[in-house]
Amino acid sequence: MSDLLEINDLRVHFPVKKGLFQRPKQYVKALNGVDLNVRQGETLGIVGESGCGKSTLARSIMGLEEPTSGEILFNGKDYMNADAKDIHHMRRDVQMIFQDPYTSLNPRMKAGESIAAPLKAYKETDRVEKRVRELLELVGLDPDTDYHKLPHEFSGGQRQRIGIARALALEPKLIICDEPVSALDVSVQAQVLNLLQDLQKKLGLTYVFIAHDLSVINHIADRVAVMYLGKVMEKVDAGSFQSQALHPYSRALLSAVPVPDPSEERRLDRIVLNGELPSPADLPSGCVFHTRCPLATERCRTEVPVLEEKHNPNQKVACFHTG
């Protein structure tokens, strides 16, 4: 399979300004050298805790954030250095589904209008209504009754379906899902996850699926990338993530998730990480994880580990202690 999206050494640094006219002295390093590739037709899951840079990554791919350096290649073409017109055309192939279905829809726009908006933005004005009806049906809403309703008349799950229909309107190739189910109730979560999987099969979509919930990622992703403080710590096939994750941070994350099974749950040897996330404005030297890592040694404090193949070609880990 070929790579649909390739990200090379992407960095996004935000200046921290102190005072009105002063030059920034510090930078928040939200992304600090991220390498990723997304293959045609797969779901790449990105996990990490708040502050790991996963949302900044999504925003950079969508062109909402200006990267400091690095490359984003879409279909082999450089996204960042293209001119405005090319970007406008490229962007229709990459769409996004947002986290909060309560704030991601314009409260004064009817469901049908929200879904039609991207079509209008790309001047595809003929047969808009028919297309919107198809989309409503595709995501499991009723084209007759739901077309003219305002967002507040829908439940959270239904709103998320509208958001999905809007993302599908331009027939994109890649969809960035930024925590699409974390604001939903568990029973509704399953509805939306199933819908996303069905759509992928039917329309041949590629997903970048961002979540903090490991069980959701495990369920939906083909490959998983674990992020910590603006870096990718480990990349592995989703099938072997649970059992064969090597990076100590991945292991800690996996063991921290409470499993909904009492006997399993009480048997587990939990790795409880000490301490808190360091500030991204003042990153630790060496491996960024060393301040909380149970395996950290002197080398970790001074040297930065790179992502390297471990055990099999589908697993890359950035750690000195994983043989």
Partner: peptide, 20 residues
């Protein structure tokens, strides 16, 4: 976030300001 959503679906600044 619906403003961001509008931007990612290709809405121009004018459309964002007037319609959103």
């Amino acid at each position: 976030s619906y403003i961001e959503a509008a931007r990612t679906t290709g809405a121009s600044h004018f459309v964002v300001i007037t319609r959103y």
